[in-house]
């Protein structure tokens, strides 16, 4: 009797051990994944990484995601890619009808394709229907990352 019981008890203990192990793993895995911060840089922040130093050549621009809206980062003509002062960043949402603006290397201006609105590199309207300037962002370089912040420039 006793001889039969012991293996059965062992089997149940193994089963239980395996169950605890599997359940523990299934619980800890999501938690571990959760704790490791995701690559996207936080939520609702007032600053985002807009790109890397060297990504833009002088007289080039790119669109980046700022919250749910596009922003535009420009390395001014003749600017030093390593200096934050050479960059200009604005909300890329045209003040006329919310189209996304782009940088025109040929005329060195920010341009909205929808209604031919032109902005200078201070965000001011040069011509076309936009009623207001583009809101400017502050640019800072940390390491080789270019950060753009919505705080007052």
């Amino acid at each position: 009797m006793a001889d039969e019981k012991i293996p059965r008890r062992d089997a149940i203990n193994y089963l239980l051990g395996a169950g605890i192990g599997a359940l523990g793993a299934a619980t800890l895995y999501p938690i571990a994944r959760y704790i490791i911060p995701p690559p996207a840089s936080g939520s609702g922040t007032s600053s985002v990484s807009a790109g890397k130093v060297g990504e833009l050549k002088p007289n080039e621009g790119k669109i980046f995601k700022f919250g749910n809206a596009p922003g535009i980062l420009i390395l001014k003509p003749g600017g030093d890619p390593a200096s934050a002062l050479s960059y200009a960043a604005f909300t890329a949402v045209c003040t006329h009808l919310n189209c996304t603006v782009q940088y025109r290397t040929d005329i060195k201006e920010i341009w909205c394709a929808c209604h031919n609105g032109h902005f200078d590199l201070n965000g001011k309207v040069i011509s076309g229907p936009p009623p207001e300037a583009l809101r400017e962002f502050r640019v800072a370089i940390k390491g080789d990352e270019i950060f753009v912040s919505s705080e007052e420039a």
Partner: peptide, 8 residues
């Protein structure tokens, strides 16, 4: 964005 954030 956070992995398994929806779950937690």
């Amino acid at each position: 964005e956070v992995p398994f954030g929806w779950l937690i």
